[in-house]
Design a protein around this nucleic acid. Structure first.
Lengths: 262, 262
DNA sequence: AAGTGGTCTAGACCACATA
DNA sequence: ATGTGGTCTAGACCACTTT
C-alpha cells in the first residue's frame, strides 16, 4: 500500500513508520494485536525477514511487544508511580517501616522484596568514592529487588561502610522489617544531608531479566548518598527504576530559600 | 570458540555475550574496531545474518556503533554534564543570559541554539493541563535545539499562556538573548515556585535525528513548571536531554528544612 | 578497485501457545 | 494439529569509505 520501492528509505523503516503512526493516532490501540508476520508479508509483498526488521524497530522503541507463539501487540503503557523528593528524606524516615513500603501501602498496593545478596563485598569504584572508602575496599552491601503487587519495580543496592555496619543487623541476610535507614538511626547515627544523582541508560541483560523489562525500556539510576553531621557517608543507595513506570518529582519555592552549597 | 550449538541460548546472543564481556573487561577498549562481519563469520562459523543479530543487540544497548562502509566500533562514552537543581532556580535567574549559556560558558565551552519553531500552536494535552489552559487551547511555543560546542545537547520546548505571551517578545522568532525566563520577569511577573518532573524513555525517530542520538541511548525528559505568587502558571518547559550525557543532581540538608507542600 | 556495513530474499527448522 | 514468533542459513545486491 504505502511502501515505495523507489524510495531511499529501507522498506523495513517505511513499514515501521506506517505502524508507528497507526499506533500514535489510535488506529491501533494499546493491547490490540498486530497482523501476523506472514499477514504483513502478504499485505505488503515484502519478505518475512523485512517485516521482522520493521517490528524490531518498534520493539526497540518500546511501542510493541512480541510473544512467541502468540502474536505481536501494541504495548500497554503501565501506570506511572511518582516519586517526590520530600518523601525520601528525613521527615518521613521515622515511620518504623521502609519508606518504599509506607508509600506503596498508602496507595493501596502490596509491597514485597526479594533479597538477592547481603554481606561483605568489594565496592564498585564509583560507590567507593562516595562512601569515602579506598578503591577496591570492602563494604557491606544489601542488594534486593523491590516489588509492587509482585511486579518488579526497583532493583536496589545499598552500600554501608564497615565502621558503621560490621557486626550489626545490617549484615543480616533477611530483609530488615524497619528498613536500612531506620536501622542506621537505631545504631545512633543521624542523617544530616544528602545528595541524589539521577541518570538514565539502557539496562544490562541481567538487570533487564531481574526487572522483567521488555526491550526498549530504559532504567533510571538514582544514586542516593547520605551524610551525618560530621560529613561521614552513612550509606550509598544505588537504585534502578523501570524507566517507563516512574516519574521523579522535585519542588522548589521562593519563600523558602534554596540551600546554597558553594 | 565459545559458541555452543547445543545450548538453549541463541547463537547470536551467545556471541553478543562474548563481545559484551570483552568490552566490559577492557579487552576491547572504547573506539577500538571490532572484527568485520565476515571475519566473525569465519571465526565463529555462523552466518553473517547471525553475526549481525549479535551486533544489533550491542548497538541497542548503546555499547557499539556501526558505520556503513567503515566498520563497527566500541562506543566511546561521552563526558557527562551535571545539572544541579539549585542552578535552575530563581537565585540564578537574574544574570542577563539564559541559564544554559551561563553554565556552559562557565565550563569553558561554547553554547549555541537553533530555533526550530516559534509561535501560536495548540498545546499537547499534558502541557495544557499544567498551563491551566483548556485541552486543545492555543499557547505560545518556543521550540529550539541547544548545543554545546556545536553538539546537540538538549531539545527544548517552552510553552507560555496567551494572556502572558501574546504580543510580547516571546513571540519573536529569533532566539532571545536574555532567555525566556528573564523576558518573563522583564514583563513584570515573578517566579514564586516550581515543580520539576523527571522521566526517561526512548526517543522518537524525529527526536533521535535532531539530537543526533545513536540507537540505544534514552532521553531524559525534564518537565519544568513555574508559577507566580498567585499560583498562575507562567511557563511550562519540556526539555529532552541526551540520556548518557547528563546527570541530574539534587541536594537536601536537615538544617534547612524541606519545603512541605504536600 | 576492494572492503565494509545495510538491506532484502526465500526457505528451513524450532519452541511455544492455543484449540 | 495449527499457527505464531524466534532463530538460522546462503546468497544477492546496494551504498558508502578507503586505497
Amino acid at each position: 500500500m504505502a511502501l515505495d520501492r523507489t524510495d531511499d528509505r529501507p522498506l523495513s523503516s517505511q513499514l515501521a513508520d506506517v505502524l508507528r503512526s497507526e499506533i500514535h493516532d489510535g488506529t491501533r490501540p494499546p493491547s490490540s494485536q498486530l497482523p501476523t508476520e506472514s499477514k504483513f508479508h502478504e499485505i505488503y509483498g515484502v519478505s518475512r525477514t523485512t517485516v521482522r526488521a520493521a517490528l524490531q524497530q518498534l520493539v526497540n522503541e518500546g511501542l510493541v511487544v512480541t510473544r512467541k507463539g502468540y502474536g505481536s501487540y501494541v504495548r500497554e503503557q503501565p501506570p506511572i508511580r511518582r516519586i517526590s523528593s520530600d518523601r525520601r528524606h528525613a521527615i518521613h524516615r521515622a515511620s518504623g517501616k521502609p519508606i518504599f513500603d509506607t508509600e506503596v501501602i498508602e496507595r493501596g498496593h502490596l509491597p514485597s522484596r526479594r533479597m538477592l545478596q547481603v554481606g561483605e563485598a568489594k565496592a564498585p569504584s564509583d560507590i567507593a568514592q562516595w562512601l569515602q572508602v579506598e578503591p577496591g575496599g570492602s563494604v557491606i552491601v544489601r542488594c534486593r529487588l523491590q516489588l509492587i503487587d509482585d511486579q518488579p519495580t526497583c532493583l536496589s543496592a545499598s552500600y554501608f561502610p564497615l565502621w558503621l555496619a560490621k557486626g550489626t543487623r545490617l549484615e543480616q541476610p533477611n530483609a530488615l522489617p524497619e528498613g536500612p535507614d531506620n536501622t542506621i538511626e537505631a545504631l545512633g547515627y543521624k542523617f544530616a544531608r544528602g545528595v541524589e544523582v539521577l541518570s538514565a541508560r539502557m539496562p544490562a541483560p541481567e538487570e533487564a531479566r531481574l526487572l522483567r523489562l521488555p526491550p526498549g525500556v530504559p532504567v533510571v539510576r538514582l544514586l542516593d548518598i547520605d551524610y551525618d553531621e560530621q560529613g561521614r557517608t552513612l550509606q550509598v543507595a544505588d537504585d534502578l527504576y523501570v524507566g517507563d513506570r516512574h516519574e521523579f518529582l522535585y519542588e522548589w519555592a521562593e519563600t523558602q530559600p534554596e540551600v546554597v552549597t558553594r
